[in-house]
Design a protein around this nucleic acid. Sequence first.
DNA 1: TTGACATATTCCCATATTGGAATATAATAT
DNA 2: ATATTATATTCCAATATGGGAATATGTCAA
Lengths: 116, 116
Amino acid sequence: MARAPTTFDPFNAVAEPKRRQLLEVLGTNELAVNDLVEQLGWTQPMVSKHLGVLKTVGLVSERRVGRQRLYRVNAEALKPIYDWVTPFEQMWNARYERLDQILQNMQKEQKNVSTK
Amino acid sequence: MARAPTTFDPFNAVAEPKRRQLLEVLGTNELAVNDLVEQLGWTQPMVSKHLGVLKTVGLVSERRVGRQRLYRVNAEALKPIYDWVTPFEQMWNARYERLDQILQNMQKEQKNVSTK
DNA sequence: TTGACATATTCCCATATTGGAATATAATAT
DNA sequence: ATATTATATTCCAATATGGGAATATGTCAA
């Protein structure tokens, strides 16, 4: 069995660095394909292909205006990633808290040593 | 060019649902391979292979005790994902804020209507 | 030393990938 | 109608994938 398709879920879609970059460039704006071609410096078909994947997964929405297609980030489709990774954030924060405690203990001990 | 290897970065490593599941089962615990085999119900080689990918990317650390190998999540390796996805969170929260404002405005207008 | 246990590695297959080049589609302007 | 502009799609190659089965490695116990 091969790896799950990139059109399967946001995790797979966003595993590709170029698609993350594309989403970053889009940001909160609504841009046409050629705007993205210009800002990213990629070929037009490459931009269109990556947009296609992002659209299939629902990470971008498309609006047709004349012969242009305007794309916009649909940030809510990133929520599964946010929701999955957030609980782990407590693990490194917990470590920092522990680190803080360790540092505080070290200060106390130094105090004890110096005042003794 | 093929897709970037799963051992390339945490985004690619975590794109595979089974590896996310494995990290979830590990959680804050330190477990041996056989514990994971039991809890996940996968074959032992499959568990070892996924652990291998996670270890290459630095998402788990390994400690050898006797003939066992104890694995633990290295949550900090998930920070790039957290850092990348977090800014987008404001986009859907902003929408909710806007929604809140709209709802508040609706209430005000209703008040105006009823008190007039 | 030999056997049992815990884990990792290798080999194979079917499948999906990304990028490049070429081409197709769709909408507007002349 | 035709040319031009904007975008999408198709075809190709090289490569990496995850699962299954079999096997190798490493560690302890008798």
